[in-house]
């Protein structure tokens, strides 16, 4: 037992800290940049890793002179609704493709994957036409309804994998017990697939949170912008980057989400154990 501490140090804590440093250093850098004065930022004689005259000016600019709070609210609304739509569609489709025997299953699974192959850079121009025809341009709906196209293919395939990994026997015995398929699906398969569903949810939410091109092209006013579009289009002015505010925007646009995820990650493990007990 005494040997486990150095061993754990070597197999867990050391690589973990290394990974943390590499992955999180840019965030430290964003933070440092966001509280430096412009003068200190370009001072090459000082120690760049530290701040000597911290300032909250860049945060003030972000909140007082841009519509950051509005953008955050928009991004949140769009992401939540688009994720919900995508999850419902993907759970239904993933279950059908993984569990039901029907003609054309492989073809449909393939077709869903193909839609994912179409690059957004190719799609955004003709897509704006569709969005306009539906009268959705410059509304949050233009994003809420188009984001699922990026989210459904992956979520469906991810969930197909999960549904498959759940032993068929569990469900079949319930069916034989007289439960309907829908009941078998909602009460047996779904709880077991919870980690997968949460994973798909995190994926979908993050991608909606991140999306740039559609949000850039479909919106025409500051009130409708999302965080990435608002920050990039309004804080890079001419040939001047407002580094401090840009970095403040990047931080505030990601850290809260990570904090929320830290609660979810917990649930996501809990979902697993619950499923395991039932199984």
């Amino acid at each position: 037992m005494t040997a486990t501490v150095p061993r754990r140090l070597l197999t867990l804590y050391l690589p973990l800290s290394l990974a943390a440093i590499v992955l999180l250093f840019p965030f430290y850098w964003m933070f440092i940049t966001s509280i430096k004065t412009d003068r200190e930022l370009i001072d090459l004689n000082g120690l760049p890793f530290w701040v000597f005259e911290p300032t909250l000016e860049h945060y003030r600019v972000l909140f007082a002179e841009t519509g950051f709070l509005r953008w955050a609210l928009n991004t949140l609304t769009i992401s939540v609704v688009a994720t919900a739509i995508s999850l419902v569609c993907s759970i239904l489709a993933g279950y059908a493709l993984a569990r039901l025997r029907f003609r054309g299953a492989a073809a449909i699974a393939g077709a869903i994957f193909v839609t994912y192959l179409v690059p957004q850079t190719l799609l955004f121009l003709p897509l704006l036409e569709v969005v306009r025809q539906l009268g959705l341009s410059n509304t949050l709906w233009s994003m809420i309804l188009t984001y699922p196209t990026i989210l459904i293919p992956f979520s469906t395939w991810l969930l197909m994998g999960y549904f498959r990994s759940i032993p068929r026997e569990l469900e079949e015995s319930a069916l034989i017990d007289g439960a309907s398929r829908v009941r078998a699906m909602t009460q047996i398969v779904l709880p077991l697939a919870l980690p997968g569903i949460l994973s798909a949810a995190i994926f979908a939410f993050t991608l909606s949170w991140n999306e740039f091109i559609y949000a850039l092209v479909f919106t025409n006013s500051t009130d409708i912008k999302t965080i990435p579009v608002g920050v990039v289009t309004e804080l890079v002015k001419g040939d001047v980057y407002f580094w401090g505010s840009l970095m403040a925007g990047a931080l505030l646009g990601s850290v809260p989400v990570a904090l929320i995820y830290s609660f979810f990650v917990d649930k996501y493990v809990g979902g697993l154990t619950a499923g395991a007990v039932k199984g």
Partner: peptide
């Protein structure tokens, strides 16, 4: 968002 991390 990639648009922002890319700027970092």
């Amino acid at each position: 968002p990639t648009a922002l991390s890319a700027i970092a």
